[in-house]
Amino acid sequence: MRAAFADPVLDAQGAFRALLHAMSHPGRVVALDAAPDAPAPLMPAAAAALLTLADAETPVWTDAAGEALDWLRFHTGAPFVADPRDAAFLLATGAPPALDALDAGTDEAPQEGATLIAQLPALAEGRGWRLTGPGVEHEHRLAAEGLPPGFAAQWAANAARFPRGVDVILCAGPRLAALPRTTRLAEG
């Protein structure tokens, strides 16, 4: 078993700050200063995001197994669930579950909608999707490689049920970008 954040308090605060920045600037790629040395196939940014957000009171779903799963279990202290719909946070190292298969919260409590952390081969700005909406002044371009075909359609369906919906954090290595449910996405 490996350790997680070198400095649990400050590193988690730094990661939280980075997540907040990413969520308030949809599509902007943010690099984490201090990321944990997580076992494969976990990426540093994805591991840092889950360590920061999940705790004993947030059910988590992941497709990771073996050492990676043990590591996540131990360091988050979260209950892990088998059905993606039961999770508050999800970490997909492979193909992510369909967005409409996740907890979108209720009109009364939309904040209970799930957050999906998806690991991708690469994230690049300046090309790809055209993102608009709150937190984007005109348009922000983000290329996210490796998402399943039809993700844009899934995202449109997710936006249509606002204020319900799920939020997505895209991770590639030590970098991440966020798609809050308010963001509009057009394929480039």
Binding site: M1, R2, A3, A4, P8, F74, H75
Partner: peptide
């Protein structure tokens, strides 16, 4: 020994 988690 090395710290794995905590002390917290």
């Amino acid at each position: 020994w090395t710290r794995l988690r905590g002390p917290e």
